[in-house]
């Protein structure tokens, strides 16, 4: 990509054509691109701003406005947003922005109900209901952003639920097994996202980009790292499952993202997770008899591990480029 700049500097492109050349090279946005982008920005920011404005308004909890009026306003707004969506479903930019705004207003409606009728219901119920209600929407809207938002809602509901109850569906979980739940939850969603982004998934559900899957991949790595930490620092009695889980998942993750669905970003994150694990392991043994030399050892080990990781990533990058060229 930097070739274009050196070519321009060498004078191979006339100065009047520089801008055009840069556009062709993908280094500058062209007129159509700008038009599209500005439209996208205006409508998305505009609708989101409206939606957040509404949320702020009801968070203010204006006492002078009767509760029936409040419910009426929100429901009218909700219907209006969805109504507009039905009208404009063919135009991708506007419809996706409308859906996002609609989802936010729906959340505001649920929150208003909880705020008004002080039933003492637990907070997780709001998020769980919200996630449940928008499920059909998220499934068919083919929007990575909505999927991630939905994943966020479910994770939040789970976290809030676990603050109150230590069991789920009758299985009792003490705190050290909690990461498993997150791993399971996000792992399943990751699989779903990856499947949806492939060419084999049904057209009405398919996702165009993989970034939702990538974000979930990072979350899964985080959960795995927490399990790894638990493995090292936790009570050594019942670590069997943790060991199995970690020893199976980490290599598994690597195999998937190196050979099955090559993704350098996730591989780099995986390398970082592994480095953290190794460093934590080292720290645990070193802290038994703490001294300054241990710190130096940690520093040098870290530097060494990082170098190995960086070299490996660069090599894999080249390999992947070769493999792609050979296809």
């Amino acid at each position: 990509m930097s070739e274009i700049y050196s070519w321009i500097k060498q004078g191979l492109v006339k100065s009047a054509d520089t801008q055009r050349a840069l556009e062709v090279a993908g280094e500058r946005g062209d007129a159509d691109g700008w038009f599209h982008f500005i439209k996208f920005l205006l409508i998305t920011l505009g609708l989101l701003s409206l939606a957040f404005g509404v949320v702020f308004f009801f968070a203010y909890n204006w006492n002078d406005l009767g509760r029936f009026y409040k419910f009426l306003i929100l429901q009218v707004l909700l219907v209006a947003v969805f109504g507009l969506y039905f009208l404009k479903a063919k135009q991708t930019i506007v419809s996706q922005a409308l859906l996002l705004a609609g989802v936010i207003v729906l959340g505001a409606l649920l929150a208003l109900f909880g705020q008004t009728y002080q039933t003492g219901a637990d907070p997780w119920q709001l998020f769980a209901t919200w996630a449940l209600l928008i499920s059909p929407l998220v499934l068919f809207a083919r929007s990575e952003a909505l999927w991630l938002f939905w994943a966020l809602l479910i994770n939040t509901a789970l976290t809030l639920y676990l603050q109150i109850n230590h069991s789920l569906f009758g299985w009792l979980f003490s705190s050290r097994y909690l990461p498993w739940l997150y791993l399971l939850l996000n792992g399943l969603m990751l699989l779903l996202m990856e499947w949806l982004a492939t060419a084999k998934s049904p057209r009405i559900l398919a996702l165009v980009h993989r970034w939702a899957a990538q974000v979930l991949g990072l979350v899964v790595l985080y959960a795995l790292t927490v399990i790894g930490m638990e493995l090292i620092w936790g009570n050594h009695q019942s670590q069997f499952f943790n060991i199995v889980l970690y020893m199976v998942s980490m290599p598994g993750f690597f195999m998937v993202y190196r050979y099955f669905k090559p993704d350098l970003l996730l591989l780099t994150a995986w390398a970082l997770a592994l480095i953290i694990f190794i460093m934590a392991f080292l720290a645990e043994t070193l802290f038994q008899h703490f001294d300054a030399g241990g710190m130096l050892l940690m520093a040098m080990t870290l530097i060494g591990l990082t170098t190995v990781a960086v070299t490996w990533i660069k090599k894999t990058h080249e390999q992947l480029k070769q493999e792609q060229a050979n296809e």
Binding site: A292, G293, L296, A299, M300, I303, T306, V310
Partner: peptide
């Protein structure tokens, strides 16, 4: 790639803290 640079930056910074601890305690 940007994420490789993030790795280098983050790890470098962490290693620097260990070095500092080494100097401080040593």
């Amino acid at each position: 790639l940007w994420y490789v640079r993030v790795l280098q930056g983050f790890a470098g910074w962490l290693a620097a803290i260990f070095m500092l601890a080494f100097l401080g305690f040593g």
